Deep mutational scan, measured.
Amino acid sequence: MEVRTIKVFTTVDNINLHTQVVDMSMTYGQQFGPTYLDGADVTKIKPHNSHEGKTFYVLPNDDTLRVEAFEYYHTTDPSFLGRYMSALNHTKKWKYPQVNGLTSIKWADNNCYLATALLTLQQIELKFNPPALQDAYYRARAGEAANFCALILAYCNKTVGELGDVRETMSYLFQHANLDSCKRVLNVVCKTCGQQQTTLKGVEAVMYMGTLSYEQFKKGVQIPCTCGKQATKYLVQQESPFVMMSAPPAQYELKHGTFTCASEYTGNYQCGHYKHITSKETLYCIDGALLTKSSEYKGPITDVFYKENSYTTTIK
């Protein structure tokens, strides 16, 4: 009895394709271990004539594949690729409408935090270190965002349907971005203890939790000093293409032309909904596939993004 075979390709990165001759009487799992086709788990399936010449994702289970996976995804987590594939199996079914010149995501599976993050990423200057993220990001900007969303979920250790947080998501993504040249110098002034300067680099240099107003941050924000008295913390120097200011959701007025974009969060910790506000020729609110415009805006804002380049204080 002759062994019926077909020729397929296996890959971990969709760049390096490895030619395989597979036995049609055995499952993919018996031949390769966990195997995925377009995100779908085909591990328990036997090869079919229609699979001839198709590319299958496999887990990096030998040295060659491990090197290829690390170079593309910059992670050695053995569960990463499987999590990416199972997320992709959902995100490829989502709709990605162009809204006001940006790629958004039609609401499904509690994905409003991903839509808000995706919209924000198209408006701030950011370059990702893992080629996987950078490639998928370019495709997302062009309207094909399924891979990018699935990668975000995998890097953030999230599953489809789980509630997510924009600030946490951005923080994970910033860790995989090139923020080497970003720098922030802060000064804390206390009447009792004097003053202390701190220099922050990388992710810490672009994120701040405690106030939404970048102007206020430049002037000074009140913080408790270690001595128990009130101290003032203010920005001395900022070198970065953008800054992200966050605070627990509270009524906040966004003035046209003073910011790049913002995240609105309605609801409580267990259950809520994100919308995205962007400042173009007027203010726009993007909620999944829905767009509304207004000249002014007041609502429960939790993150505001500002364009920056270089700032030095005039406070002496």
Rank of each mutant, 00 (worst) to 15 (best):
F9D: 08
T11K: 00
D23L: 12
D23A: 11
S25G: 09
T27R: 11
Y28S: 09
D38C: 10
D38T: 09
D41S: 11
I45M: 12
K46S: 12
K46W: 15
P47S: 05
S50N: 13
F56C: 11
Y57N: 09
V58N: 07
T64C: 15
L65D: 12
F70M: 15
E71R: 10
D77Y: 05
P78K: 13
S86P: 05
L88N: 06
L88E: 03
W94I: 03
Q98K: 10
V99G: 12
G101E: 10
T103C: 09
T103A: 07
K106Q: 14
K106T: 12
W107L: 03
N110C: 01
C112H: 03
A115F: 08
A117C: 10
T120K: 00
Q123T: 07
I124R: 04
P131K: 06
L133G: 01
A140N: 04
A140M: 12
E144W: 06
E144H: 09
C149N: 04
L163G: 14
L163D: 00
R167D: 04
E168D: 02
M170D: 00
S171I: 13
Y172H: 12
L173E: 00
L173I: 13
F174A: 06
A177V: 07
N178F: 00
R184H: 02
V185Y: 02
V185E: 11
L186R: 05
V189C: 13
G194K: 10
Q195V: 15
Q196F: 13
Q196K: 13
Q197L: 08
T198H: 13
Y208A: 03
G210Q: 07
F217C: 01
K219Q: 08
Q222Y: 06
P224M: 14
C225S: 02
C225P: 01
C225N: 00
G228E: 01
K229I: 07
Y234M: 09
Q237D: 06
E239Y: 04
A250Q: 15
Y252A: 10
Y252W: 14
Y252H: 13
C261L: 03
C271H: 13
H273P: 04
Y274M: 07
Y274I: 02
T278C: 11
K280G: 13
K280A: 14
T282K: 09
C285P: 02
K293I: 10
K293Y: 09
S310C: 06
S310M: 14
I315C: 15
